Simulated assay, not measured.
Amino acid sequence: MAADVEPFLRIEGVSKNFGPFQAVKDVNLTIGKGEIFALLGGSGCGKTTLLRMLAGFEEPSSGRIFLDGQDMTGVPPWERPVHMMFQSYALFPHMTVEKNIGYGLKHERMTAAERTDRVRAMLDLVQLTPFAVRKPHQISGGQRQRVALARALARQPKLLLLDEPLAALDKKLREHTQFELMSIQERTGVTFIVVTHDQEEAMTLADRIAVMDRGAVQQVGPPGEVYEHPASRFVASFLGSISQYEARVLRIEGAEALLDVPAFETPVRATAIPGLVEGEVLTLAVRPEKLAIHRHPPGGPNAIPGEIKDLAYFGKDSLYRVTLPSGQLISVHAVNARRGGEARPDWYDKVWVAFEPAAAILLRG
């Protein structure tokens, strides 16, 4: 969390057991006021269980949760300044858009005029004023998502929990809605916690990400930091595509390490990590977009010959799978920005794959 962000939500040693199964294991997180924070992980990693404990639908087996300085232990869901927006949106099909948005205000201490003003403000916030009298089946999936968001924000929660909020949308609409969510969060200043299994969604939306696996938090940080400097093989492989190979340190040369990588059948150079020693065995990882593919031997370090085994052409870019001298594969992501008349590498072409020492990721765990 950035130094200038005020701590707002503290999760201290929280675990959750369902009989002998431990769904969440000793989670410690501090989330700042006004952050968009993502809990990222695959199915069964514990992220939704953690979200439900924040909402009050589940009680921790151990540990405590503090929201804006208040201990949430024993506080029921309806008394928490928290709203949870579910994946299904849970809109009332027989109610209009404006009535759906205003439903949660029925029991608030407000006059009818104040409720009307609040609903109008929410409609304006999510740009749905022209659709106020329509019913959910008469609007698009993206608009239904915004109705659910407006209903959640109408009660002015301190914390908004979003469980896979964009999962029901198609890819193009999901990308557009991500930026709408960010804009709405910036205007309201409400702290958002988003649960998702979609790495691109988490990296686009969130100020920071917590990557979870088997109930435990594996790494926390800004998207760029977690992507570029993963703390483990699991995080590296979960967040984006990556090729990983066993390596042994031959020697340390200043800021770089010379590595023996059997898959390459030639030594390679990588930026050294703290505590690295000669003879240490670890993992060398390289992301596809950090690699360059050449028809002829390039100058510089870390050039490995190979043969193109597979090729996927996406228009603006291509993905190559190259067979290395050892028989192992490496993936290369290349942007199709070639000059006119320059041939693009094709199936079974002999090529060279190269990367800079700084592009190599060394992993111990």
Results as ranks from 00 to 15, higher is better:
V5C: 03
L9K: 07
V14Q: 02
F18I: 10
T30D: 01
F37C: 04
S43P: 13
K47V: 04
L51P: 11
E58Y: 10
S62L: 00
I65Y: 06
F66W: 15
D71I: 03
P77S: 08
P77N: 04
R80F: 10
H83M: 13
F86L: 08
S88N: 15
M95P: 05
L105R: 02
A112D: 15
A113C: 06
R115F: 02
R120I: 09
Q127F: 05
L128Q: 07
P136C: 14
R144D: 06
R144Y: 05
A152L: 11
D163Q: 12
E164G: 03
L169I: 04
D170S: 05
K172P: 04
E175F: 07
H176Y: 13
T188F: 08
V190N: 14
V194M: 09
D198F: 14
E201Q: 15
I209T: 01
V217Q: 00
Y227T: 14
H229C: 04
Y245M: 08
A247L: 03
A247R: 03
A255V: 01
E256K: 02
P267S: 10
G275W: 02
G279N: 02
T283K: 05
V286N: 08
K290M: 07
R295I: 00
P297R: 14
G299F: 05
G300S: 09
I308E: 02
F314Y: 14
D317A: 14
T323Y: 00
Q328P: 06
Q328A: 12
W347N: 07
W347K: 13
V351E: 01
A359E: 11
A360Q: 06
